[in-house]
Design a protein around this nucleic acid. Structure first.
Lengths: 228, 228
DNA sequence: GCTTTTATGTAATAGCCGTTTACATGAACG
DNA sequence: CGTTCATGTAAACGGCTATTACATAAAAGC
C-alpha cells in the first residue's frame, strides 16, 4: 500500500510488512544515491517508521545489506536457472539465454548486483568478514548454474581435450561479471562505447567457445576454417 | 616522517605534505575497513591534523576519493604501459606481461582499484555524476594500452578476419576486470577455488586468442589441430 | 473473554562524521 | 619589516548509527 510519494502507508501502530519494505527501500536508495549514499534512516523514512524501527528486523546496517545480497542471489540463481533450462533446446542456445539473463539481472537490479559483488558493500565489518554475499549458499547455487552450463558445453569435446570444468566456469563468470560491472554502473566507464553489454558478451563468448573447440560450424563469427 | 604508530609527525603548525599523506591514509583505511568504512575524520587523525584540515585540499570527501581514483589510474596506466612495452619482444609475451601487470596492480592497490572501478565509490553525488574515476583522461590512457595490445594481436590476422578493435579490447578488459574484481576483494567469492587469478586469466586468454585465430601453434593448451 | 507474553513500534539519547565558519599561524614576497 | 595568502584549528550544526527504556497491539494460554 503506497501513498502518492511512494511511502508505505500503514493503518495501525504496527507496520505489518516492514522488513520487505525496508529491503525495497534500500534497493531503491542504493540505485538513486549510488552504492553508499544509502542510509538506514532514510530507508526508515521511506517506509514511514522511526529510525529505530529497522533494528527490530536487522541487527545493524550491514545486516540489512547482507540480506539485500542474499535475497538478490536467490533471485539471481533462480533466473539463471530458468534461462539455462537444462541446456534445452541446445546447449548453445541455452548458453546464450544464460548470458542474457545474467546481464538482464544486473541491469534490472543494479543495487542488488552491486551489493552482491562489490563487496565493499557487505564487506568485512569489525572482526571477521561478513560478506554473506559471495560465499552464501544462494551464491553457490548461482555459480552452480554456470558450472552446469560449462559442463554441458565441455561435454561436446573429446574427453582428452576438456579443460577443467571449474576453470571454464570461471572464465564464463569472469567475463559476464566484468561486463556487468563495467557497463551497468552509472558512471562506470565503457559507456561511450557504442556497444551493448549483450553484444560484447555474446561476441566474446563466441570467440571463446571457438577457442574451446565447441562451436559446431562457422557460427556467428566470420572465419570458418576449422574442423576441416 | 612517521612516528611509531604510523602517524605523520610534523614539527610546525603547517603540515607540509598533507595532501599526499591524506591520500595514503585513505588507501590504507579503505584496505582495512572495507571500501566504505573509510572516514575523512579518521584519515585526518592518521595524518595528525584536525578534522577540518582536509577541506583545505579537497572540496569534500568525494573529491578525495576521486583523487584516489585519478592518481590510481595514472599509476595503473603507467604500469600497464611498461608491461606492454610496445609488444616487445613479441606481442604474445608482452600480452601475457600486460595481464599479469593488470592483476598485480589490483592485488597491490586493492583500495585504489576498488575506488577506480567500483564506482559506488566515486559515483554520483548530488546532481550529476562525479565519477572522475572511469571517464578521466588517466582512465582512457589505461584503456588505450589495452586497445593498442588488441590492435597488435589483431594485426596478425588477415584483414578480412579482424573483428572490431574496440570489441576485442573490451573482451580483454572485461575478462581482466572480472577476474580482478572477483578474486582480489577480501571476501568476494571465488576464494575457495584453488586457482590463482593469473592462472584463470592466462588460460582464459589463451582460449580466447585461439578463438580469434591469433595463436601461432598449439600454444599452451593441449589441442593443436588448427591452421592445418 | 481475559490476561499474559511476545513482537514490533516510538522517544530520547550518545557518539561519530561531514561540512561550514570564524579565527590563528606562519611562509612567501614585497 | 609588513602584507598577503596558504594552510592550519576550534566550535558548531545537522544527519547518521546504534542503544535503551518505554508503548502498543497481536498472539497464545487459560
Amino acid at each position: 500500500m503506497n501513498d502518492s510519494s511512494g511511502r508505505w502507508q500503514r493503518r495501525s501502530y504496527h507496520h505489518g510488512n516492514l522488513k520487505e519494505v525496508l529491503l525495497e527501500a534500500a534497493r531503491k536508495l542504493i540505485e538513486e544515491h549510488g552504492a553508499f549514499g544509502f542510509s538506514l534512516a532514510e530507508a526508515a523514512r521511506l517506509a514511514g517508521v522511526s529510525p529505530a524501527a529497522p533494528y527490530r528486523h536487522f541487527r545493524d546496517r550491514d545486516a540489512l545489506l547482507a540480506e539485500v545480497a542474499r535475497t538478490g542471489f536467490e533471485r539471481f540463481a533462480a533466473r539463471l536457472d530458468v534461462a539455462w533450462n537444462n541446456g534445452i533446446p541446445t546447449p548453445l542456445s541455452a548458453f546464450e539465454a544464460l548470458g542474457r539473463a545474467y546481464l538482464a539481472f544486473a541491469r534490472e537490479e543494479p543495487a542488488s548486483y552491486a551489493v552482491m559483488f562489490e563487496s565493499g558493500a557487505a564487506a568485512e565489518h569489525g572482526g571477521e568478514a561478513v560478506h554473506a554475499a559471495a560465499s552464501s549458499p544462494a551464491a553457490e547455487k548461482a555459480f552452480n548454474v554456470l558450472q552446469r552450463a560449462a559442463a554441458a558445453l565441455c561435454r561436446q569435446l573429446p574427453e582428452n581435450e576438456r579443460p577443467p570444468l571449474k576453470l571454464v566456469a570461471m572464465h564464463i563468470w569472469t567475463m559476464s561479471h566484468g561486463i556487468a560491472s563495467l557497463f551497468i554502473q552509472e558512471g562506470s566507464a565503457a559507456r561511450k562505447i557504442p556497444l551493448s553489454p549483450e553484444e560484447v558478451l555474446e561476441s566474446g563468448m563466441l570467440i571463446y567457445l571457438k577457442g574451446l573447440g565447441v562451436l559446431p560450424e562457422g557460427d556467428g563469427q566470420e572465419s570458418s576454417k576449422e574442423t576441416p
